[in-house]
């Protein structure tokens, strides 16, 4: 089986960038309801910048860890914001994992959880705080479980995608305890977490890349 290499990651970033661009306004609208309305802008612009940057990289030579490190610094410098440090740290944690040794594509869940750990380390959110980690962790764990049960890449991809979608919906029932929306207290109830929504988009891009490469 093939491992998570640069080409795979580059394909993920391309796919995610396209979809975030398509959902730019929808994500801004979600963020407008309980935040400051910029989430779609940050995510779409940030991933577009990663994409532009990766296009310029000598693809052959870059290790997958290097791709993630570059994505981290590009994203951070482009958007700053709340998501900048969070995703930059996520990518760096992912890079560290891949530096430790090649990771089989089926083990994508481990990369997802590593990234979630990065987000958590940086943002200090707990599960249930109505943040993006409420989507990253369940999705990662579902993918790990599917792989552990011997699922095919397509099955792992399906598990990842489904879990992300479900987890995104659960954020509706949470009261925000981190980030801007936390000032709204109960008023954040009944709304999707925008960071959770964009997380689901990125996770779907990972899943689809896994499924289509398989």
């Amino acid at each position: 089986m093939s491992s998570i290499d640069s080409a795979f990651l580059i394909a993920v970033f391309r796919r995610a960038a396209d979809r975030l661009e398509a959902e730019r306004q929808a994500l801004c609208a979600l963020d407008g309801e309980i935040g400051d309305g910029d989430h779609g802008t940050s995510m779409a612009n940030g991933f577009a910048a990663i994409n532009d940057h990766l296009r310029g990289m000598a693809r052959q030579e870059a290790t997958p860890a290097a791709v993630l490190r570059d994505a981290a610094s590009t994203f951070l410098a482009e958007v700053g914001a709340t998501v900048g440090p969070l995703y930059a740290t996520a990518f760096l944690h992912g890079a560290r994992l891949l530096e430790a040794g090649d990771l089989d594509r089926q083990q994508i869940g481990r990369l997802v959880v590593a990234m979630a750990d990065g987000i958590k380390a940086r943002g200090q959110a707990e599960l249930g705080d109505k943040t993006m980690i409420d989507v990253w962790y369940p999705a990662g764990h579902a993918a790990i479980a599917a792989a552990a049960e011997g699922g095919s890449p397509a099955e792992v991809a399906r598990a990842l995608r489904m879990a992300a979608e479900q987890a995104r919906e659960t954020t509706v029932t949470m009261i925000a305890a981190r980030g801007r929306a936390s000032r709204l207290k109960e008023r954040s109830l009944g709304h999707l977490d925008p960071g959770g929504a964009s997380a689901a988009i990125i996770l779907a891009a990972i899943a689809d890349t896994l499924a289509s490469a398989a």
């Binding site: 730019r24 306004q25 801004c28 609208a29 963020d31 407008g32 309801e33 309980i34 935040g35 400051d36 309305g37 910029d38 779609g40 802008t41 801007r180 000032r183 709204l184 207290k185 008023r187």
Partner: peptide, 28 residues
């Protein structure tokens, strides 16, 4: 926002938001 050029959220005709910040967030 410049990017959306639509109101970030709607406030009813006869309502206002009390306790807003400076990022167009809803108030408390």
């Amino acid at each position: 926002m410049p990017d959306t050029q639509r109101p970030s959220f709607k406030i009813g005709e006869d309502d206002m938001e009390f306790g807003v910040g400076v990022h167009g967030e809803p108030g408390v």
